[in-house]
């Protein structure tokens, strides 16, 4: 089991009881990946099924949401396949457009 800190920023916290920071235990037979974490979030943390498409589109993180692994763009860390380690900080932030 791996324990990570999960953050929902840029207004995404609205679908997580307005709570920005969550400690999450991800259980998996093999080393859990970010993909496993996303599945966990969808299954266990989004209470309202209507809110799932605020977070997920076509099976992955919705366009307009940036995913960061320890403050680094997940594209630089292997994306969904990144293997989680204890203490990792995974942040999801919605892109803002207002000016």
């Amino acid at each position: 089991m791996v324990t990570v800190k999960v953050e929902f920023l840029g207004g995404l916290d609205v679908i997580f009881d307005k709570q920005r920071i969550h400690m999450v235990n991800v259980d998996s037979s093999e080393t859990p990946t970010v993909k496993d974490l996303i599945d966990y979030i969808v299954k266990n943390m989004i209470r309202n099924p209507n809110d799932v498409d605020v977070f997920i589109e076509n099976g992955t993180i919705r366009p307009g949401i940036l995913t960061l692994i320890n403050d680094t763009d997940w594209e630089l860390e292997g994306g969904e396949e990144y293997e989680l380690e204890d203490g990792d900080v995974i942040s999801f932030t919605s892109t803002l457009h207002g000016g």
Binding site: L9, G10, G11, T93, T95, L96, H97, G98, G99
Partner: peptide, 9 residues
């Protein structure tokens, strides 16, 4: 840059 609510990027 952009901003909304209490946040900015």
């Amino acid at each position: 840059a952009s901003g909304l609510g209490t946040e900015g990027q």
